[in-house]
Design a protein around this nucleic acid. Structure first.
Lengths: 125, 125
DNA sequence: ACCAAAGATTGATGAACTTCGATATGAGTA
DNA sequence: TACTCATATCGAAGTTCATCAATCTTTGGT
């Protein structure tokens, strides 16, 4: 059970990081992210883990003025309006899109810095 | 139906990009990624969309020598060995981890440039 | 050849997710 | 007020996913 790399060393009470106090076999390198951080970051990647949502981001980003309303988005994706609304809500909840209602229409745009913040979640793993 | 922004213009046969030849209402900005590209990229984000897989990447990255074997990974995550093997396979299939078998042990390490390539998938949306 | 240990694979179960049709909400208009 | 249109929400159906226990495969040692 994990004896090949010297963990379970009895003489050395190693300085446990706040992360993973119960772990013994993590091979004594850099501390890794804890479960809470992992869940936070995973929730953002979950929002990106659907091809239709990636296309929504792509279309919104490429639209003139940097914004698009739901009626502009249903046809290119070949999805029903409730489904598109659902996906947009997921992207908004993930902090990637911003929603602004003007009159009857709801305009969606990229949250400034959201892409950079997300790439940071990967680079700082 | 999408009449507020001038799509469905009858006089102009617009040069349809290979992407989305059937779309009419995408508001005439930059071309967006097609469904195939979206599925390719989503498959990578799907691999990242699980907290335990993010922790696996984090632990592997932080391990001495940049590699870790399965027995080093099951305990910190508090998951069974088959489950960890399953997650590792998903990360390997996504091109994020490399697997090298030495003796009885399987050592996993980050694929060089994988993180940068993944952030590129986001920035080029 | 036999045994033990590490890791992968299989099959099952419960949860989460995508999608849709139907309906509700809310703003603009006659 | 009544009507229409854009969007959001609800409920259901089908699919995918995470996890586990059990089993198989492979490697090293005796």
């Amino acid at each position: 059970m994990c004896v090949h790399n010297g963990c379970m060393n009895p003489g050395e009470t190693l300085e446990l990081t706040p992360v993973d106090a119960e772990a013994c076999c993590e091979p004594s390198g850099q501390p890794s992210i804890d479960d809470y951080e992992a869940q936070l970051r995973a929730s953002v990647f979950k929002a990106l883990a659907d091809p239709n949502r990636l296309r929504l981001l792509s279309i919104v980003r490429g639209s003139e003025g940097g914004e698009a309303c739901v009626c502009d988005l249903t046809q290119p994706l070949n999805l029903g309006q409730p489904t598109v609304s659902h996906h947009l809500k997921i992207l908004v909840d993930a902090g990637l899109l911003h929603r602004e209602k003007r009159g009857t229409w709801a305009y969606y745009s990229l949250v400034p810095g959201a892409i950079e913040r997300t790439t940071g979640l990967l680079e700082s793993l």
